[in-house]
């Protein structure tokens, strides 16, 4: 087991390294002068050119540049944003919380919704209910998240006026304590529902297929022959065997928890990383962009690593591969 963990750890670190390299390579392979890209200006001043040259070591061979880059990273220096000349790192973390609130809620909701309905469908395989649920799973899975968000906003915020249109908190009054929490929750409902509806079908399909397959396994027949009650077979043996692919999916998803909501955040003006990413993209704020990309990649690599470990705990067959 220990060797397994070590090997997975190694893969994770290797991945992060590769990501760093890609990050670095993109800027240097892009058409155009790196200085122009880094400064964001067409005609940077001589002083700025010198400044950037020094900081990034642009006149040195690229191997040295890469090492400089790594060294900077080790110091937590992700560069400065072009737009506001603030360090990139703190900016990202500021917006990160809002994004995490949204995506974690949505992912968990999607997981619960999809898994429960998927299991239900599997038990009623080929019934009318199963057919209807499967169709809706397809339907929601086919929807662009931003479009669904817009439509939900239209119906519930504009027409029915029961939920706020955008933002994370009401701008009119500043609430404290419990009021603040409730306010956030009210604002959270539409965007997280949107995301949950778009993600849930994946869990639904995986769980449904897995449960159907597990119900067909030989040990189910064995246990039925021994007189074990159906509910006990279900709860203990079928679920534990069937849950494995779903857990993998959840783990992967949690890794993307940091990135996946950008489109929905923009639709609902949720003050998370989505808006920041978009601005960075349009202003060509490259240091900010790479900083974001780096963080996303690292969180994905870590999430995959943790998922692998958890999976190996659940499935003893994996530990020796």
């Amino acid at each position: 087991m220990g060797r397994f963990v070590l090997r997975r750890l190694g893969t994770m670190l290797l991945t992060i390294f590769v990501v760093l390299f890609i990050n670095f390579a993109l800027i240097h392979l892009a058409p155009g002068d790196p200085i122009r890209i880094l400064s964001g200006l067409d005609n940077p001043s001589e002083e700025m050119i010198q400044n950037l040259r020094e900081r990034y070591g642009l006149d040195k061979p690229w191997t040295i540049q890469f090492l400089t880059y790594l060294k900077q990273l080790a110091h937590g220096d992700l560069g400065r944003s072009i737009i506001n000349d603030q360090p990139v790192g703190p900016q990202i973390f500021e917006k990160l919380t809002a994004t995490l609130v949204l995506t974690l809620t949505a992912t968990i909701a999607a997981f619960v919704l999809g898994t429960v309905l998927g299991t239900f469908s599997a038990f009623h395989y080929r019934s009318k209910l199963d057919a209807i649920l499967s169709f809706f799973a397809y339907l929601f899975y086919s929807m662009p998240s931003f479009w669904l968000g817009l439509m939900l906003m239209l119906v519930f915020a504009s027409w029915l006026k029961i939920l706020p249109t955008s933002g994370m908190v009401s701008l009119r009054e500043q609430q404290q304590g419990l009021g603040y929490v409730l306010d956030v929750v009210r604002h959270l409902i539409l965007p997280s529902t949107t995301l949950a509806l778009v993600y849930a079908p994946v869990y639904y399909r995986i769980t449904r297929a897995s449960v159907i397959q597990t119900l067909d396994e030989d040990f189910v027949t064995t246990f039925l022959a021994t007189g074990l009650s159906k509910s006990q077979i279900l709860r203990k043996y079928v679920l534990r065997n069937a849950i494995l692919p779903t857990v993998t999916m959840l783990g992967l998803h949690l890794g993307y928890v940091v990135t996946g909501a950008a489109l929905v955040e923009i639709v609902f003006a949720w003050p998370g990383m989505g808006r920041m990413m978009l601005d960075a993209v349009f202003r060509r704020d490259y240091p900010l962009l790479t900083g974001i990309y780096l963080m996303i990649s690292v969180s994905v690599a870590i999430a995959i690593f943790i998922t692998d470990i958890i999976y190996s705990v659940l499935d003893p067959r994996i530990r020796y591969s």
Binding site: E217, D218, F219, T221, T222, A225, K236, Y237, R240, N241, L244, L314, D315, P316, R317
Partner: peptide
């Protein structure tokens, strides 16, 4: 009953 040999005659994760 003893069934035909199957690697999954018992739950593989328990």
């Amino acid at each position: 009953v003893v069934f035909q040999k199957s690697m999954n005659a018992l739950s593989p994760v328990h």
